[in-house]
Amino acid sequence: MSEKKQQVSRRQFLNYTLTGVGGFMAASMLAPMVRFAIDPVLTASTAGEMQAVVDVSEITTDPQRFDWTVEQVDAWYTSDVTHSAWVYKNENDEIVPLSPTCTHLGCSVSWAGNEDYPDQFYCPCHDGRYQKDGTNVADTPPPAPLALYEYEVRDGTLYLGQPVPRGGV
C-alpha cells in the first residue's frame, strides 16, 4: 500500500539529490577553471580597443610623435606599455597615423632623424629610410612601408587602434 503512494522512492530521492549536489559542486569547480583556461581569449578583445591619442587640433602637416600608454595584461602580469605614432595631415587634409616601428628589425624611426634627409623618416639602427607617406626608400634595409594605424576621430580626438602592416615594394 504505502509503496504505491511513494512516487519517488528513497533510493531515487537520494540519487536525484546527490546527482544535483554533486553536479553543482563539479560545476562550481570547473567554471573558474574553464574561465581561467580561456581567460586570454576573453581579455584579448580589450587590447584591440581604440585608444585616445591626441586632440585633432594639434595635428599639423609635419609629422609629430605622440605617445600613449595602455595597460597590457599578459595572463599573470599587468604592465603599462607605451606606444607611439607619427601623425600628420596630408595635402587632402586626411590624417596619416604611421607606426614608428621600422619594418627591418623593429627599431623606432623618427621624422627628420638624419640631417641629410630632412624630409624622410630615419631609422638610426641600420640607416633605413622612409618617405613621408611611410613608403620605404629603395636600397635601404627596410623591406616594407611603415604600418598605418587604424584610426577614427570622435569628438575632436584622434583614436588609434592596431597598426596594419602594408605589403613590401
Binding site: H104, C107, S108, C123, P124, H126
Partner: peptide, 11 residues
C-alpha cells in the same frame, strides 16, 4: 625598456 623600444633592431 624605453631605450630598447627605440633600438630593438640593434640592441
Amino acid at each position: 625598456r624605453e631605450a630598447e623600444r627605440d633600438f630593438a633592431g640593434r640592441m
